[in-house]
Design a binder for these strands. Structure first.
Lengths: 347, 347
DNA sequence: GTGAAAGCGCTAACAG
DNA sequence: CTGTTAGCGCTTTCAC
C-alpha cells in the first residue's frame, strides 16, 4: 500500500555507467581535478551535464570515510538561545558556508561534563574537521586529548589559562572597568557585581578584575560580599535573594549594580519593576552584553557592548587558518577585541 | 619539527584484535544487540571494558555509509539569530539529543533558493534522516522531490498549501484577531498591519486574515493600503517610510498599528522614540511574537505570544514518529497550537 | 587522458 | 554463542 520509493539517489557509479566511463573520471570532475589530470574540456562538460541531469550529489559519508575530512566544524556555546551566542553562531554559519563548511551547533549549558562529551561526540564520532569552543571548562588540561592530536580548535569568548590554543576574545577587564567607573563617577559608593558562576570562567574573572581595579583606583571600600556569584541554573532566585539582602542593609546600602551578563540583567530588571526600585535615582545600574531590551527599557540601560560580528568572523577565520595551514602550537593566535561602553539613562 | 600524532583513533578492528575476537562481536556490543544474539554477560563486559580503556568511539561516517542512517536531523529556519527561532531550535536540540539525534541547523534568510539548496545539501549530501523546516517556499510542489522519496519532513511555524506534510504551527489567525480586536476595542479606527514579505508565507496570510476578520467584524472601514509588506532585508527603511506616510495623512490618520513580527516591532519602536510618537496616547501598538523587550520597554508592548517550547518539542516528537513509523502521507499530523495575547500598556 | 582496483570503518546476512 | 565475509560510495594510486 505504501508509495514505492521510485527514485533512489544516484551514486557516482550510476553517473559513470550511464555515460560508459569510469568512476574515477566522474570523481575527478566532481572534485575539480580535471585540469590536474589533463581531462579534456569536452569530457568534463559531458560528465557535468549528466551530473546536473541526474541531480547527483556526492555522498558525504562515503567521502568522509575515504578522506577523513568531513567539512564539518563543531561549534559549542553555552546556550544557543542566548542572543549573544546566537548572533555569533549566525556569523560563523555564514562565513563557514562560503568555504564549504557546515557547522554543527551544540549547547553545553555551562556544564563541563556535557561539554566534554559534546566535544568527543563531535570530534571522534562526527569527525568534524575543527572546533570553535566557548568553553565552560575550568582547566585547559581537560582539552589535552585534543592538543595531543593537534586537533584544530579555537577558543572564543572565553579563554582558558595555559591553554596554548588560538583564542578570539574580548577585553572584558577594560569593559568592566569602564562600566564600574561610570557608576563611581555618577556617585555610587557601594557597588555590587553580579556574575554568573562558575566563577573561574575567564570572562567572569576578567570582569571581576576590571570591577576591582575601578573600585581600588577610585579608593572605594571594597567588600568581598559585593561580588556575588549567580548560578546559571537559578538566575532569577539568586538575583532576587541577593538584591533583597543588599538593599535591606542599613549601613553601606547598595547604590550601584553591575550585572555580569544579559540574563542576570533581565532578572535584575524584573526585580526593579516588581519592587518598584527607581533606577537610576535609587540604584544605578549597568550591564555587560548589549541586548535590544536595553535600548527600549525604561530607563534605558547602560551596557558594555561586545563586537559579536567580529567575534564570529574572526573565530572562523582563525579556524580556517588552522585547517589549511595547521596548528602553530608554539605561538597560537590570540585575538582580543575591544568592547564599547554605551552610556544610557540607568547610570 | 611538528608534534607527531601519536594516538590515532582506535577502530572497531583494533578493539577486536586486541581482544582476539571478531569485529562482529564488538559491533554487537556497541549497538546493544548482545541480548538479541545471546552474547554472554562476561564477553560483553570484556568488550565494553576494552572499549572504555581504549576510548573507542564508532566512526559515524562508516556507520552512516553502511546503514544509510545518520542520526542527523536537518533544521532550517529563516534566521537562527532571531530569538523566536533560536528558542525553538534549542528545544529541538535538547529533545533530539535524548534520542541520540544531532541537529544540523541552517538559516535560509527567507530565500527560497537558498532554502532549496540547503535542503538538498542536508538530504542528499549530509544524509540527514529527517528535516524540520520553517519554510520560506511559496508552493508545496517545490518539495515534491522529498515527497516522492517519502522523506521524513515536518513543517513548523509555517505551513505550505496542499503540502500534505505533517505540520506544527500556531493559530495565527486567532492571535492576529485578538491583537486587532484589542486595538479596536480601545478605540482605534485606522489600524495598519505591517507584515514581513514575501506575503505568501502562511503565517503572514493567516495574520492578515485575522486582522481583516476583526476589521470587518467590527465594521471598520478597510483599506488595502493599511496592509503593508515589509521586505525582510530592509525592515528599518520600509518601516520608517511607511510610518512617515501613514502618520502624515490628513484624513484617516493612523491610530493603531499591528507589527507582524518581532523585528518589525523593534523598528517601529525605534521610530516611535526618534519621532517622539507617544504610545499609546497618539498611536496604539501591538505585535506578534513576544520578546523580552516588550516586557521592559516604555510603554510595555502588548503582544501575541507563541508557545515556543511546545513548537519545539512537538516538532521533534512528530519527526521522531515519522522516523520510527514512517510517513502517513494520506493523513499527516497537523498540529495547531494556541497563541496567547498578552495585554500590556501599549494598547 | 582514462580505467581498475584497493580500501576507509562499519554492519548484517549467513555459517557454524 | 561467535566468526567470515561482502559491500555501503567514494578517492587515489598505479597501470595502460
Amino acid at each position: 500500500m505504501n508509495m514505492k520509493e521510485n527514485s533512489k539517489k544516484p551514486s557516482i557509479d550510476d553517473i559513470a555507467r550511464s555515460l560508459g566511463v569510469s568512476k574515477t573520471l566522474v570523481s575527478m570532475v566532481i572534485n575539480n581535478k580535471t585540469e590536474k589530470y589533463g581531462i579534456s574540456e569536452k569530457t568534463r562538460k559531458k560528465v557535468e551535464d549528466k551530473i546536473a541531469e541526474m541531480g547527483f550529489m556526492p555522498n558525504k559519508a562515503a567521502r568522509r570515510l575515504r578522506t577523513g575530512k568531513s567539512f564539518l566544524i563543531g561549534v559549542i556555546v553555552p546556550d544557543i538561545s542566548n542572543p549573544f551566542y546566537s548572533k555569533i553562531v549566525r556569523i560563523i554559519e555564514d562565513k563557514a558556508q562560503l568555504d564549504g563548511y557546515n557547522p554543527m551547533i551544540c549547547s553545553s549549558d555551562e556544564d563541563s561534563e556535557k561539554e566534554i562529551s559534546l566535544i568527543k561526540m563531535l570530534v571522534d564520532s562526527q569527525q568534524v574537521d575543527g572546533l570553535i569552543l566557548s568553553s565552560t571548562l575550568e582547566k585547559a588540561d581537560e582539552l589535552d586529548f585534543l592538543r595531543k592530536r593537534n586537533f584544530p580548535c579555537v577558543l572564543i569568548d572565553r579563554s582558558l589559562p595555559e591553554a596554548n590554543l588560538p583564542t578570539v576574545s574580548v577585553d572584558n577587564e577594560q569593559g568592566a572597568f569602564a562600566a564600574t567607573e561610570t557608576l563611581i563617577k555618577s556617585g555610587c559608593k557601594h557597588i555590587a557585581l553580579f556574575a554568573i558562576s562558575p566563577g573561574y570562567i575567564s570572562t567572569i574573572e576578567e570582569r571581576k578584575k576590571g570591577y576591582l581595579k575601578a573600585i581600588q583606583q577610585y579608593k572605594l571600600s571594597s567588600d568581598k560580599k559585593m561580588i556575588v556569584e549567580i548560578p546559571y541554573n537559578d538566575i532569577k532566585n539568586a538575583v532576587y535573594e541577593n538584591l533583597d539582602g543588599l538593599l535591606k542593609k542599613k549601613t553601606g546600602k547598595l547604590d550601584g549594580l553591575f550585572a555580569g551578563n544579559n540574563n542576570i540583567a533581565l532578572a535584575c530588571m524584573e526585580y526593579f519593576i516588581e519592587h518598584k526600585i527607581k533606577v537610576p535615582e535609587q540604584l544605578k545600574f549597568v550591564s555587560f552584553d548589549d541586548i535590544d531590551v536595553f535600548r527600549f527599557s525604561s530607563p534605558t540601560i547602560s551596557a558594555v557592548e561586545q563586537p559579536v560580528e567580529e567575534i564570529g568572523s574572526w573565530s572562523f577565520k582563525v579556524l580556517k587558518e588552522l585547517l589549511e595551514n595547521g596548528n602553530n602550537l608554539q605561538n597560537p593566535a590570540k585575538i582580543s577585541l575591544p568592547t564599547r561602553f554605551i552610556k544610557r539613562k540607568s547610570s
